[in-house]
Every structure is written in structure tokens, then in C-alpha cells.
Design a protein around this nucleic acid. Structure first.
Length: 943
RNA sequence: GCGAGGGUGGCGGAAUUGGUAGACGCGCUAGACUUAGGAUCUAGUAUCGAAAGGUGUGGGGGUUCGAGUCCCCCCUCUCGUACCA
């Protein structure tokens, strides 16, 4: 008879449910094992094969552990808050709460068809007040410890939808996912969690957990700890200001030719304002006279920006700068007090400064005093120092800066930081002072400097940094080599940035130092002179948790005119999410529209106050749900701390690799925080982590929007859930995933049919024969012996494979066993029972319904999972008595010999040489050597 | 660009420490049983060759008695990441 999966599945599901087979006794800590799979987002679409691929094999692992006597806790729940439900509401008008509850009901039913051993008493959902109350409580705890704070931060804002978008809703083109409008960045005051306080611990903890190396590396990079130096640059004309830059290459400090500020920095605004542009008549009489003289004397340089920068950077020139606008709306920079040094004069001569050159030409060959005198005569300056006038390239320099800042604010984070984008920037007109040599370098703003990293200011060393090099080339800024690559010419021009270590040059007293050593030498020098210090920087940013959205946990903060920011008192929690809300976007958080919600009284003074109208990031929910599962109905706290201590860290956690740096980092942070406030006694939430691979469809990720989702429905109907789950496991390595194809499912089905028939043919065997634990191999027939060995071998293999999530080879080993049991009919009933008992038990984790049925067909009264059982291996049966020894000639296989294990070399040699093929290949050749690897190979080397 | 992981028959994929490459399954071929076969069973199936014997794990080089496995260079695919100073 064909395996009647419909009846069998129904029968066992009912029995499991009636017997509460999968209800875990959490007070029993002997061999306690917490297996967890990332909980499900209850969307309107059905469970697809991706969910099955995630959950079913994990359940098989848990079942295996259960059969081995572990007290396994395997819960399932719903990550029920979030954007999709709200977007769905905007589209259809169905309230997120209604659709979510409906979806949860549907999904629960679908999950049950899988036949996983979830403890349904532990089921939880995050969108109910009993759950999110504790998000709020946790928020307040963080707040009390100074780890929750508010600051102004940019969000992705769609001007057309009038709403805030999550990063993943912004397309790579920088447009809105829904309406294709260009997304803007808008500053809003928002809540942050200070995860950065835990940066070091999050980094160190990685060493203690059994996670995929790849994931740990990703977290490591994400945290991005980097050791460097913070250097203080002065600002010309602003004694009170300084620019701090972070660098990992203090050894290149002498190569700084400009400084870059991120456009968002407050300092940029100040510099812009301080570099005020005067109208010409606002200037002093003296200056006006000077300007006219410079203009009439034609000491006006039309194309001199580049050359001026050269002056500034190559020489320690201290000038006074005045910006003004003339009657024809041209902007000029007037630099006074250029010291007319010999250096400058010779330098000037190098560049096509037509005007100055024409002046200096006259005096080129004269001595310094002559030059001074002649220059004085020519310009009618009393002062012998040079004044120069630079015409601004762009008439609207100031506006240019503003425009640039505005423009970069329009770019999304993704777009701005795209490396393929060409570098942009604008000169501020201001100069910074390099502390190491007093050199003046121009200050630029450019969006390749990120306000969110380090100080937001960068010292640019084009010669030794790729980005700076690219920028310098584009804007014609000087490139000064200060690290010499070994074996290269000091004067050779660089065609690309040299970023490795070398010998320091052009670095005054540090010349000749190895650049690696130079890092600390220079840093020490800076510290001594109070110009900088050692500094550690992190790439990790604080966790922005505010969402200008409805379907989430309300932030438990009240704003009072008198008392300011006040937390909601614990006894007033939860702050319930009101049902009646216009969640259609109107430019603000939907909760802002609910007057009843917003208006409240201040818990401190009783006066009028308003509530925070934002909700929390849903990663908050998933940061501690594994603790709540232990008792979702617990009301005396976030979770039962006794159970938390007993059952966490989670022994096995399975979920997608896409959560590597978000969820998995946040949960670790929260866990550590909970430890610090005494709620858990462990450092890490998840001891062991496995990522399932992704199942693609024709190479594309399955998604509802693409319409390429494969539903398991038809396969379940045709083959049953056990065959389907086993096929998913058989497809390939679990952690790799792969492209979906149903081509091989018939193979698994055939295997199941054959196995079922085998049990059918031996029905009630256990009632007539008593079970044997161990056989004396000498007393077995050859067939019995080989079956006995195969069964034991399979057990050993199977255990190892399942333990390590290698389900494909575990299934294969059972198929091999099944093939090997073809001759079972020729065995004694004792041997039959021995083999079939073990076969049924091994089927248990992979095909739970079928295995229960087979197990009961043998005559067992108690179910496999009600009375878990696993068999010991007879080690004697694993010992091979004979072994195939391969005879090679020059590494090529020429003969194979079946010999007793541990046959001695002389005997092997004799047999090897008696083989005809071996003779053929060695005749007439010189024997160089012979190698014998015991029980494996006999290799003859000839020439 | 950088980081990680892959590339093995017609296909999905096996191969503890270097030691018989291709387990298991699909597909295919032949046969058996059948009124029938998209059921089941049996045998075969890397490739060239009639055979002997060659050749074979992306390509090239190397180490070794022996390399899918170790080392160097290159090609290619997938994933992650995106100017982190």
C-alpha cells in the first residue's frame, strides 16, 4: 500500500496535541536545550517554501535532540509590529491590528501543517500590550542609565508621500519605493540607544560564541574599531576655533595639503559666516586704495586659485584675508601680508602667474633686496610684503557653499556614500593650520567626509590616501609625497596614492623614520605639544529607534512645558497604542493626530503635557523575545528571571544571514544591558548560531512583489509534509540554500514508499520477537552480519550529520540503509526488529509523522516522541575486518586487493607484485621506491 | 573597490587528516512484470576508445610517491559591504 500520508499525518498531529507531547517542562533542567528559530513576520501571504526551509530542518534538529533525551524547548511566535501592515492599511483601509491578528490566525494554522514540535503554550506576539509594555519598561531602564537620549538626526523623507521611509524603502537610485520621488534627508529630533557604549564588549564577546565566522566578521567590521590619532588644526583668523581630525595615519601629517569638513558640521556654517563677503565700499579706505592699486597695476590674477593654494600649502604663509564683492558682482579674495621671501619668489617663478611673473621677470636675476625695491616701486606699496587679489572663480561663492550643503542633504545616505560617484566639494575660503609645521591649508567641504564618523573632519593627504588623491586631482590641489615607497625615486611623480608603509620624507625632523614607527613618534610629539592625542574610533553608530509610524510600541515619554522630558511612571505602563488613529500619512507621526493620546498630564507636576508620538523600531521587540517565550504570560516583569537564568543563552539559534548586523547585534546589546541591570546572568543571548541558505527561484530571491514565490501547497497535497520537508533537506547543504527545483522530490517519495513497505511487511514484529540490543557477530550469517554492520554504521554517520546541520547527507545515509535492507527478509526476526527499530527512530527527526506510524507498526504502544528513544552504537560493528588496498604505479591505480585489516607490509608487497597489471606497468623499469600506507595504498614508483 | 564563500558528470550534490573522485538522488539506457505505464523491480550510466589504455574536480604553474583537498598567479559566479579618514 502506498504510504497514506493524509491519514497518518492527521492521526499523529492529533495524538501529539492530545498528549501535549511538545509541552516543555521548564522546571526540568536536566539536559535542558533551547532551540530557537527567528520568529515569523505575520504578513498576508502564505508560508512559502523559504519558511519551510528555515523551520522544518531546524525542527528536525530539535527532534533529534529530543529523541536523544534532551528536554527541548522549541517555541514559535510572531514579530507582529512593523511597516508592511501599516502600508497595507494605507492601501486598503484595513486596520493593522485587524489584519495582523487575522494573519496570525492563518499563519498559525499553516505552521501546524508542518508538524513541528512547537510548544504552543509558549506562543507570543509582540503587538499586544502585555508584550510591548516591557519594551517601554526597558526603554525607561535604558533612559535611567543614560543609554537612551534624544538628538537631531536625519531621516529619509519622501516629500510626495509626506512620510518617513526606512533605509530599505529607499531604492538604490535614491527614490521612494512607492512613488519614485527623490527622497530627501530631513532632520528630526529622535531617540537613540547608546549601543556605542557597549562597542568594545560587543566586539570581545564575539570570541566566546559559536557563530559562523562570516557573521562574526561582519559584526566586527560593523563595529569597526580603529586605532588612530586625533589632531587639532587651528583655523586662520579664528583663534578660538579648532578643527579636530581623526586619522589612522599620523605619519603622513606633513603631507596634508587641505582639510575636508562634512557639509553638515556646524563649523561649516560658522566659517561661512565668518568669511563674510563685504561690498567694496564697506572696506577701509586703505584697503580700497590698495585694491585699486592692485587692479590698476594689473596685479590681478584671473586664474590663480590653484597657484595661490600652492603658495599657501607649500609655504608657511600667514596672510590676512578679506573677501569682497565689487560693483560688477565679482567676488574677490584679498590676501595681504604675503611675506616676500626668497622662497616665495623662486616658487612663484615656477607657476604661470602671468602678472606676477611679468613683474618678477624684470628682477629675476637680481638679488633679494633689489627685488624688494623694485616690487615696492612697481606697486607703490609702502609695505614691502606682497598683497594679491584673487578673483573668485564663481561669482556666487557663498551661495555656492550653501547650495552644496543643500544638495548633499538631498542625497540619500546610500547615494552619498556610493564610491562610484565622482567626488564633489567646494572651497570654503578659509584656511586651517597644520600643527606640525604651522602650514596653512585650505578648508574644503565635501560629502566624502561623513559627519557621522570620527569628528566629521578629515586631514587630506592626497599622496597617501586614495580618496584624497582622487579629490586633489579633480580640484587641482597639491599632492605632496611624505612616505617613500621602498625602491622608488623620491622625485618621481605619483600616479596613484601610495597607502602602504615606507620611509618618511619631507617631514622635517621626522625624515628617515619608518612610517609605522612614525605613527607613534608623531602622536607622541603631538601629545607633548598639546596638539593631539591617541584616539580609538568606532564605525558603529548609536541605534536610532524612533519611527514616525503608527504600528509599533509607543515611546513612554511625556513632554511637559515646565518639567521638560519626563518618563511615564511604571504603574502607568503600558502606554497603549490607540486603535483609532488616522494612520494615513499627513506629514507627521500618525499618533500626533490622536488628540486623546497626545494630550496628557505631567506625571511630575500634574500640568498639561504631551506624549511622544513616535513608536519604536521593531528590532526592539526582537531583542528580548527569546526571554519572553519562557513565560509569555508573566506579569511581574519583562520575563521570569529564574527561567531566564535557567534557559538562556539559547543553545541553538537559526535564522537568515541578513540579520547579521542588525537584529543579532541589537539583541546582544540588549542582553548585555539586561545583565547589567541584573535580569540575566549570561553575557550572550545566543550560544550557537546557524544561518539557513536562501532558496531562490531561477536565481532570483523569492518575494511577493516579484510574484515568484513558490508555495508548498501542491507538494504537500501530492506527497505529504514529511516528504516535502525531507526533500528540502536533501536538496543540498543547509547553509547554502540554492535554486528551487522540484525535479528530485520523486526520489524522496520513492524512498518513503519503499521504507513504508518494509515496515508494512514486518507489521507487529515487535509483538512476537523481543528486542535485541547487541549481537555476537560471529554467530550471524553473512547477510545478517553485513546488515548489522550497516545499521550501526548508519547510526554513527546519522548522528554526526544531524548534529552539524548536514541534513542532505543524513537523508542520503538513510537511503543507503534502506537500499541495504533489501535482503532483510533473509535475516532472523531478531535482526529484522533490530534494524527496523533503529530505522524508524532515525526516520523520527526527518519524517516525524511517518516515523511515528512505522514505529507503531512494529507493535509499539507508546509514541516515539511521548517516550523518546535513541539507540547506542555497537562499536565492534564499526570495525572493518577487511579493507581494500589500492595498488598504484606512479600514483595511478593499477589494482585493488581486498585484504584483512592490518595485513603486514611483506604480504601486501607480495600480492601487489603478483598482479598482472602491476607487472605490465613496471616491467623493464627501474624501481625508485615503494610506499605503503597501512590499510590504504601501496604505491610503486618506477622510472 | 574591499571582505567572505563557491566553481566537481546531462542535473542537485558526496568525498574526516593529502591516499580508490563522482556517495545518495534526479534524469537517461536496457531488461523484467504488465492490457497499459508518468507504477514497481533488476542492471547499467564521468569521458574518449572496439580493447589495451588514455583523459578528467574553472584555467595556468608549483610542492608531493600521491592533490578536488596544500602553495602562487589568473578567470568566473554568489553573498555581504559601500568613500569609516
Amino acid at each position: 500500500m502506498k504510504y497514506p500520508f493524509t491519514e497518518v499525518e492527521k492521526k499523529w498531529k492529533k495524538r501529539w496535541e492530545d498528549n501535549k507531547t511538545y509541552k516543555t517542562d521548564l522546571t526540568n533542567l536536566e539536559k535542558a536545550l533551547y532551540t530557537l528559530v527567528m520568529f515569523i513576520y505575520p504578513s498576508g501571504s502564505k508560508l512559502h517554501i523559504g519558511h519551510w526551509y528555515n523551520y522544518a530542518p531546524t525542527d528536525s534538529w530539535a527532534r533529534y535532540k529530543k529523541l536523544r533525551g534532551y528536554n527541548v524547548f522549541e517555541p514559535m511566535g510572531y514579530d507582529a509590529f512593523g511597516l508592511p501592515a501599516e502600508n497595507y492599511a494605507i492601501k486598503t483601509g484595513i486596520h493593522p491590528q485587524d489584519s495582523t491578528f487575522q494573519n496570525i490566525d492563518d499563519i498559525r494554522e499553516q505552521l501546524k501543517t508542518m508538524g513541528c514540535m512547537y510548544d504552543w503554550d509558549a506562543e507570543l506576539m509582540t503587538c499586544v500590550p502585555e508584550y510591548y509594555k516591557w519594551n517601554q519598561w526597558l526603554f525607561i531602564e535604558l533612559y535611567k542609565k543614560g543609554l537612551a537620549y534624544r538628538k537631531n538626526a536625519p531621516v529619509n523623507w519622501c516629500p510626495s508621500c509626506q512620510t518617513v521611509l526606512a533605509n530599505e524603502q529607499v531604492q538604490s537610485s535614491g527614490t521612494c519605493e512607492r512613488c519614485d520621488t527623490m527622497v530627501e534627508r530631513k532632520n528630526l529630533t529622535q531617540w537613540f540607544f547608546k549601543i556605542t557604549d557597549y562597542a568594545d564588549e560587543l566586539l570581545d564577546g564575539l570570541k566566546t560564541i559559536d557563530w559562523p565566522e562570516k557573521t562574526k566578521t561582519m559584526q566586527e567590521n560593523w563595529i569597526g574599531k580603529s586605532f588612530g590619532t586625533e589632531v587639532k588644526f587651528g583655523v586662520v583668523g579664528h583663534q578660538d576655533k579648532e578643527i579636530r581630525v581623526f586619522t589612522t595615519r599620523p605619519d603622513t601629517l606633513f603631507g596634508v595639503t587641505y582639510v575636508v569638513l562634512a557639509p553638515e558640521l556646524d563649523l561649516v556654517q560658522e566659517l561661512k559666516q565668518s568669511n563674510k563677503i563685504f561690498s567694496k565700499d564697506q572696506l577701509s579706505k586703505d584697503k580700497q586704495t590698495l585694491i585699486s592699486k592692485l587692479q590698476t597695476n594689473n596685479v590681478l590674477m584671473e586664474e590663480t586659485t590653484r597657484d595661490l593654494r600652492q603658495f599657501h600649502s607649500n609655504n608657511s604663509i600667514k596672510t590676512e584675508q578679506t573677501n569682497f564683492i565689487d560693483d560688477s558682482n565679482n567676488i574677490y579674495y584679498l590676501y595681504e601680508n604675503f611675506p616676500l621671501t626668497q622662497d616665495l619668489l623662486s616658487e612663484v617663478f615656477e607657476y604661470p602667474l602671468t602678472t606676477i611673473r611679468s613683474i618678477l621677470k624684470i628682477v629675476a636675476n637680481n638679488n633679494y633686496e633689489d627685488i624688494k625695491n623694485k616690487f615696492k616701486k612697481r606697486t607703490n606699496r609702502i609695505n614691502t610684503d606682497l598683497a594679491v587679489l584673487e578673483k573668485c572663480e564663481n561669482k556666487k561663492q557663498s551661495r555656492r557653499i550653501s547650495n552644496y550643503i543643500k544638495k548633499s542633504s538631498h542625497l540619500s545616505e546610500i547615494e552619498r556614500t556610493s564610491t562610484v560617484k565622482e567626488k564633489t566639494g567646494v572651497f570654503t575660503g578659509a584656511f586651517a593650520i597644520n600643527p606640525v609645521n604651522g602650514e596653512k591649508v585650505p578648508i574644503w567641504i565635501a560629502d566624502y567626509a561623513l559627519a557621522t564618523y570620527g569628528t566629521g573632519s578629515v586631514m587630506a593627504v592626497p599622496a597617501h590616501d586614495e580618496r584624497d588623491f582622487e579629490f586633489a586631482i579633480k580640484f587641482n590641489l597639491p599632492i605632496r609625497k611624505v612616505i617613500l615607497e621602498q625602491g622608488t625615486d623620491e622625485n618621481a611623480e605619483l600616479t596613484e596614492a601610495f597607502t602602504n608603509s615606507g620611509i618618511m620624507i619631507n617631514s622635517a625632523q621626522f625624515n628617515g623614520t619608518d612610517s609605522v614607527e612614525g605613527k607613534s613618534t608623531i602622536t607622541d610629539w603631538l601629545s607633548e605639544n598639546n596638539n593631539g592625542e591617541k584616539k580609538i574610533n568606532y564605525r558603529l553608530r548609536d541605534w536610532l529607534i524612533s519611527r514616525q509610524r503608527y504600528w509599533g510600541t509607543p515611546i513612554p515619554i511625556i513632554y511637559c512645558d515646565k518639567c521638560g522630558e519626563v518618563t511615564v511612571p511604571e504603574e502607568q505602563l503600558p502606554v497603549k497604542l490607540p486603535y483609532d488613529v488616522n494612520f494615513k500619512h499627513d506629514g507627521a507621526s500618525p499618533l500626533a493626530g490622536n488628540v486623546e493620546f497626545v494630550n496628557t498630564t505631567c506625571p511630575k507636576c500634574g500640568g498639561h503635557a504631551t506624549r511622544d508620538v513616535d513608536t519604536m523600531d521593531t528590532f526592539m521587540d526582537s531583542s528580548w523575545y527569546y526571554l519572553r517565550y519562557l513565560n509569555p504570560k508573566f506579569s511581574d516583569g519583562m520575563f521570569d528571571t529564574k527561567l531566564g537564568d535557567d534557559w538562556t543563552p539559547v543553545d541553538m539559534y537559526v535564522g537568515g544571514a541578513e540579520h547579521a548586523t542588525m537584529h543579532l547585534l541589537y539583541a546582544r546589546f540588549i542582553h548585555k544591558f539586561l545583565r547589567d541591570i541584573g535580569l540575566v546572568n549570561s553575557d550572550e543571548p545566543f550560544k550557537r548560531l546557524i544561518h539557513q541558505g536562501t532558496i531562490t527561484n531561477n536565481g532570483a530571491k523569492m518575494s511577493k512583489s516579484k510574484g515568484n514565490v513558490v508555495n508548498p501547497g501542491s507538494f504537500i497535497e501530492e506527497y505529504g509534509s514529511d516528504v516535502f520537508r525531507m526533500y528540502l533537506m536533501f536538496m543540498g547543504p543547509y547553509e547554502l540554500g540554492g535554486d528551487w527545483s522540484d525535479k528530485g522530490i520523486v526520489g524522496v517519495d520513492r524512498f518513503v514508499q519503499r521504507a513504508y513497505t518494509l515496515f508494512e511487511n514486518n507489521e507487529n514484529l515487535g509483538k512476537t520477537v523481543s528486542a535485541t540490543i547487541k549481537f555476537e557477530m560471529d554467530k550471524l550469517s553473512p547477510i545478517e552480519k553485513s546488515i548489522y554492520q550497516l545499521v550501526n554504521k548508519t547510526l554513527a554517520k546519522f548522528e554526526n550529520e544531524i548534529d552539524n546541520f548536514r541534513f542532505n547527507t543524513a537523508v542520503a545515509s538513510l537511503m543507503e540503509l534502506n537500499n541495504g535492507l533489501k535482503e532483510l527478509s533473509e535475516c532472523s526476526n531478531e535482526m529484522k526488529l533490530f534494524a527496523l527499530e533503529r530505522f524508524a527512530v532515525m526516520l523520527g527527526p526527518l519524517a516525524p509523522h511517518m516515523a511515528e506510524e512505522c514505529w507503531s507498526m512494529l507493535g509499539n504502544e507508546k509514541g516515539l516522541y511521548d517516550n523518546p528513544i535513541w539507540y547506542d552504537i555497537d562499536e565492534n560493528a564499526l570495525v572493518q575486518e577487511s579493507v581494500t588496498i589500492v595498488v598504484q604505479v606512479n600514483g595511478k591505480v593499477r589494482a585493488k586487493m581486498d585484504l584483512q585489516l592490518d595485513t603486514d607490509e611483506a604480504k601486501v608487497k607480495e600480492l601487489a607484485w603478483s598482479d598482472d597489471k602491476v607487472k605490465n606497468h613496471t616491467d623493464g623499469k627501474i624501481i625508485v621506491k615503494e610506499i605503503y600506507i597501512k590499510n590504504k595504498i601501496y604505491n610503486i614508483v618506477v622510472r
